[in-house]
């Protein structure tokens, strides 16, 4: 029973972060058809802003808030400076642009801040754990779960009830039709990047608090995981991004918990094999639309 509780807690806390990251990718993909690999660097930037806030003596909540907003604004600036000039170019050009932005930011972090990781001091109340039954759950995990679930609920409310939420969901189905209905493409794309950046900000804060440090290359692994999550769920599917987050998390945690020790070094290989099996059953992802090519 304790093992099951621990498993569920680990799955939900990691899955929530994955879901937030994948949603950030999915929102941009739905309006621009682009997987933004610089999304991870938005997380890293959020981490450095959080660190700066804490080191300058700001209250923790204020440092977190400023860091998340910085993620959103940076994403909007990224769209304006890097992606808008090539918006009508091919998908390959957009993809290369996102890699270029990613590497540029990494080098800026390394040379402008430090190639070394920086410890992010978090309040001591976050470093202890709570007992639930015979299980002990760290407060960082409880915070991850709470923030993750609340963020996902807020997003659902936003997509269901707001004008821009409807517009993004509609764009995910058919971007051109949304344009024909009077939604300005530039504003929609800018808004999608802003939302994506805010999601990267929330995920970045959770990631940094859990890891305890921020380094220039921090964003690479999460964005890779988010990409896999988005593919599992179905590229462009917002529901799929959330589902994919929890599926990948459930696979990773299950393997880490129950894989025999002598097979453990092959855990990542087993994880990705399972992902391939899922994709062979659902070639467009679990919630992906079947692609139709008109001749």
């Amino acid at each position: 029973m304790d093992a099951l509780i621990s498993y569920l807690v680990n799955v939900i806390s990691l899955g929530g972060t994955y879901a937030l990251l994948a949603l950030g990718l999915a929102v941009v993909f739905s309006v621009l058809g682009l997987i933004n690999f610089a999304h991870g660097e938005l997380m890293t930037l959020t981490g450095y802003v959080l660190l700066a806030g804490i080191l300058t003596g700001q209250p923790f909540w204020l440092a977190v808030l400023v860091a998340v907003i910085a993620g959103g604004i940076s994403a909007a600036l990224m769209e304006f400076a890097a992606f808008r000039p090539v918006r009508n170019a091919s998908g390959a050009t957009l993809l290369m642009t996102s890699f270029a932005v990613s590497m540029l930011l990494q080098v800026l972090f390394q040379n402008g801040i430090s190639p070394r990781g920086q410890a992010v001091p978090v309040p001591t109340w976050l470093t202890t754990s709570l007992s639930i039954g015979n299980s002990q759950i760290s407060k960082v995990q409880i915070m991850s779960i709470t923030v993750g679930v609340l963020s996902l609920l807020a997003l659902k409310f936003f997509f269901d009830r707001s004008y821009w939420g409807w517009a993004i969901r509609a764009a995910a189905d058919d971007f051109e039709i949304v344009g024909l209905m009077g939604v300005k493409a530039s504003r929609l794309i800018m808004f999608a990047f802003l939302l994506s950046g805010l999601l990267a900000g929330v995920a970045g804060v959770l990631w940094v608090i859990q890891r305890g440090s921020v380094d220039p290359l921090m964003g690479f692994k999460p964005v890779l995981a988010a990409f896999i999550v988005a593919v599992i769920g179905g590229l462009g599917s917002l529901t799929g991004a959330v589902a994919g987050g929890f599926i990948l998390s459930a696979i990773e945690i299950a393997l880490q918990t129950w894989l025999p020790p002598n097979v453990m070094p092959y855990r990542d290989a087993v994880t990705y094999t399972l992902v391939v099996i899922i994709l062979s059953i659902f070639p467009n992802g679990i919630f992906g639309k079947k692609s139709q090519e008109k001749v």
Partner: peptide
């Protein structure tokens, strides 16, 4: 080592 060591020891001490 970084960034894994800080993550590990935070989780370890956080679990008591």
């Amino acid at each position: 080592y970084e960034p894994d060591f800080p993550t590990f020891i935070k989780a370890l001490r956080g679990a008591g």
